[in-house]
Design a protein around this nucleic acid. Structure first.
Length: 161
DNA sequence: GTTGAGCGTT
């Protein structure tokens, strides 16, 4: 069917650098972190395993992240587990592009503030009663947190189960 | 228990 075409055309992201974090794709919806731990720990001690779930349905989104302690183990696992069959699926394994889970999106307005400083000509004609000053400070604080958060090493938060 | 090429929530 059409999917063969997509299989040919669809191109994964270009060669990520070797990393202790592996992305595992094409998983069965029924593959659990436990299953992955079982398979991937064969190549070395793991620092963590993370299946990505859909928040609404609670179901797996079909991919996961596996963290190794050592990059040599990660390399070996990448080569050997890529293409293996797991729970009826050919899984694909590669070094992860991202390092860690996204920081949860703040529940506040993320749009660019409409020029609260100078001119005085409001461009968009948005809600006029809003005080840009307060909103801006919240906005900035949020961003600061976001940046600091991003620098945490995964192991700081990971709990070996 | 779907379906099929890809990067993250607590």
């Amino acid at each position: 069917g059409m999917w063969t075409v997509r299989h040919i055309l669809g191109k994964p992201n270009a060669n990520p650098d070797p990393s202790t974090c592996l992305g595992v794709f094409g998983l069965s919806l029924y593959t659990t972190e436990r299953d992955l731990r079982e398979v991937f720990s064969r190549h070395g001690p793991l620092a963590g395993v993370n299946v990505v779930y859909d928040q609404r349905t609670g179901r797996s989104r079909g991919f996961a992240f596996v963290y190794y302690e050592r990059i040599d183990d990660s390399k070996e696992a990448m080569e050997r587990a890529n293409g293996m069959e797991l729970d009826g699926r050919r899984i694909r394994v590669d070094y992860s592009i991202t390092k860690r889970a996204h920081t949860p999106t703040p529940g506040i307005y993320m749009g660019r503030p409409t020029h609260s400083g100078g001119g005085g000509s409001s461009s968009g004609g948005g809600s006029s009663s809003r005080r840009g000053r307060d909103r801006d400070s919240h906005y900035d604080r949020g961003y600061e947190r976001y940046d600091r958060y991003d620098e945490y090493d995964y192991r700081y938060r990971s709990v070996i189960v």
